[in-house]
Design a protein around this nucleic acid. Structure first.
Lengths: 158, 158
DNA sequence: TGAAATTTTCGAATTTTATTCTAAATAATC
DNA sequence: GATTATTTAGAATAAAATTCGAAAATTTCA
């Protein structure tokens, strides 16, 4: 046994499904939807937060509205030993780096980066990535158009 | 002139910065933070929603808690003409597909998929992807470990 | 420039929601 | 099947959301 195992019942899943769709839904509305007392629902939500099932409530902002029109995936190789992931941690510190994944296969990391334009991506590579010694190579793929981008999970009924 | 151009002042950016960090922050707290009347802040938030600067309020849920432990990037080639993006639209309909990007270079699309395990990814490929005739090849990269995953934008001061 | 028009902000009033707490009900344990 | 732990409900109170009219600030353009 692990002690960390998390049991989620039907009600929890419904809460998660509703909250995933609209994080600003009021507790009262949630209660109405689930046909429960607001106090009971609140209790559950707090537990989901405590158990870290709910990681964060966040607002999705249009990148275009903020002039952040460049998105790129960068496959990177690193010279570090397989055990350590210092390279990844260094990459993760950079705000423009939205994702860092350790991947199977030829390359070591898959990195997702969002910046204003290609000039600022170049900046980033020159001033940040180049400072991370362990990176031995990068292969950048520019996104021309994004058709879908979300991280909604598929939440089972039960 | 475009008519669609969006002007965001310092206050708007502060609102976005705070809301991006915590979508469930109360309007009252926002107002206190910005040292403004709640009614004025509310007005701004509503406008940001209307202008689609705020796209969505969403709850980030731990994939592990829901047993969704497999993440993969799939680079795809498609036989469709350059103008159309029907393939992408079909891919976007699949709930397990979190992202679909049209990319520059050899491949046509970069697709991000999250499922329970490798078996369900196989399922997905057999039962969904294979139904999309225009897909001519796929190259799947499995994520071994995710070090960072968010889509927080870097919001300028002014 | 400066008057008119538009937008933004404020503050007070009202409705709604969040939160707390105790007791009852339900579920789990041994 | 009795005991223990957990969950729920309901009522009470504190806090927040929302509305709206008026003042202030900003923008427009003659």
């Amino acid at each position: 046994m692990n002690g960390t195992e998390i049991v989620l019942d039907k009600t929890d899943l419904s809460i998660l499904r509703l909250m995933q769709e609209n994080a600003r839904m009021t507790n009262a509305d949630l209660a109405r939807e689930l046909e429960m007392a607001p106090s009971a629902v609140l209790e559950r939500v707090k537990k989901l937060e405590q158990k870290q099932v709910i990681v964060k409530y966040t607002t999705r902002i249009s990148p275009v509205a903020l002039g952040q029109t460049l998105l790129a995936f960068i496959a990177m190789k690193s010279s570090e030993g397989m055990g350590s992931n210092n390279t990844a941690k260094e990459l993760a510190k950079i705000p423009e780096v939205q994702e860092v994944h350790h991947i199977a296969g030829e390359d070591c990391y898959m990195v997702k980066v969002r910046t204003a334009d290609s000039a600022s991506l170049m900046d980033l590579m020159r001033n940040k990535f180049s400072k991370i010694q362990s990176i031995t190579s990068t292969r950048t793929t520019i996104v021309l158009e994004t058709v879908k981008e979300e991280q909604q999970l598929v939440i089972p009924e039960k």
